[in-house]
């Protein structure tokens, strides 16, 4: 039986590796996209149970990507965790406006991220 699906949209390979490792021992099924446009396409196509959206992304920003996901019936109700940058004060507010369910400021601790994922999307 496969677990719930999570799509992680992030351009930095190290960050993707962290989340890969973090979720390895869980039942979550992880898929990835490397930029905002690909992230939106993949989310609409695969309809994951949760999206982790980095804000600083190539092509279109995480903010714009979230707005597009919210505008599409396929993903309008999908929970999204926005990963904002500590440096940009106010990103948390903007993320919520753009449609984020919750946000986590970079640098986040993997421990906190897993806690937040489990809160929004319980494993079992």
């Amino acid at each position: 039986m496969s677990g719930k699906s999570i799509l992680y949209v992030e351009d930095n390979e190290m960050n993707r590796q962290i989340v890969r490792d973090l979720l390895k021992r869980t039942t979550y099924q992880l898929s990835e996209a490397h930029d905002g446009e690909a992230g939106v396409a993949k989310a609409i196509e695969t309809r994951p149970d949760l999206v982790l959206m980095d804000i600083q992304l190539p092509k279109i920003s995480g903010m714009e990507a979230m707005r597009r996901l919210r505008a599409d019936p396929a993903t309008a109700a999908t929970p999204i965790i926005a990963i904002t940058s500590f440096a940009l004060s106010g990103d948390d507010l903007k993320a919520k406006e753009a449609g984020a369910t919750a946000y986590l400021a970079k640098p986040y601790s993997p421990r906190d991220l897993l806690g937040l994922i489990r809160k929004i999307l319980p494993e079992a």
Binding site: M14, I18, D21, K24, R25
Partner: peptide
């Protein structure tokens, strides 16, 4: 510069925390 410095440092902290949390 600060932004460039933070990105790898985030990864260092993230991996290290996962080692501490016995993810590996």
């Amino acid at each position: 510069m600060s932004h460039e410095l933070r990105t790898p440092l985030n990864a260092i902290l993230g991996f290290n925390e996962m080692i501490i949390d016995q993810v590996y």
